[in-house]
């Protein structure tokens, strides 16, 4: 039962969801819409599961004062404060003057944005140290990158004579070789998704159910 029930659920839900594409009838879609809604709730619950796991892992380390416990304590305090502020704010939590909104605007936003902007510096470092035109393949890659980088910004259009052609060459790269390569990747990925989807629905692929599933 422990093995069979999940496989039955997988098959039934999978077949119903695939059928939605082929049966465009509103009664059928009432069923799939219901299943989708349950799926949305489950996806939301996964966040809470993650939260429980995070506390389970980090709280004992803080209590035992293991290495970097102070940082983990900061994390847990920030976590509790944010959840408390959100809970107290309720449906008005995103309104002006709310603590939760303040946390988002002045803590979350700068931290999130700056974390990702660090990559600009590491790309510069990689460009200098790693991008070498060692062979024709690498030279083509670098050539295309340089054309795109120049032509996509205003200075590319301002260069005398070639400035007229650079954006056209860039558009050609984007519209012809880029599309050819992307479509090949899309088609390959689509075939892979179809095959994996069928394996999951038919119960051939069971890794999501655990080692003894």
């Amino acid at each position: 039962m422990r093995r069979t029930a999940p496989l039955v659920v997988t098959f039934v839900v999978g077949v119903i969801m695939v059928g939605e594409y082929f049966i465009p009838h509103y009664r059928y879609r009432m069923i799939t819409a219901e299943l989708i809604e349950w799926g949305l709730v489950l996806a939301a619950a996964a966040f809470v599961l993650g939260l429980i796991n995070l506390v389970q892992v980090n709280l004992p380390k803080v209590i035992r004062r293991e290495q970097d416990w102070a940082y983990k304590l900061v994390m847990l305090i920030a976590l509790v404060c944010t959840i408390t502020a959100g809970a107290l704010g309720g449906k008005d939590r995103l309104g002006d003057g709310q603590i939760y909104k303040w946390i988002f605007d002045f803590l979350f936003t700068p931290l999130n944005a700056t974390m990702f902007s660090l990559l600009a510096f590491y790309i510069a470092s990689a460009a200098f140290r790693a991008f070498r035109a060692r062979n024709v393949d690498a030279a083509l890659l670098l050539g295309a990158a340089v054309v795109v980088m120049i032509a996509r910004v205003p200075i590319g259009e301002s260069i005398p004579v070639i400035g007229d052609y650079l954006p056209k060459i860039m558009n050609w790269i984007m519209d012809v070789p880029n599309i050819a390569a992307r479509r090949a990747i899309f088609i390959g990925a689509a075939l892979g998704a179809v095959a994996t989807g069928l394996r999951v629905i038919l119960g051939i692929e069971r890794s999501h159910l655990g080692s003894d599933g």
Binding site: F47, V48, G50, L51, L54, V74, M75, L76, I77, A78, L79, V80, C81, T82, I83, G86, A87, R93, Y100, I103, F104, L107, F108, L111, N112, M115
Partner: peptide, 11 residues
């Protein structure tokens, strides 16, 4: 950042 972002996602 980790604490705030996880708390925010849960809320």
């Amino acid at each position: 950042f980790l604490g705030v972002s996880i708390g925010y996602s849960v809320v």
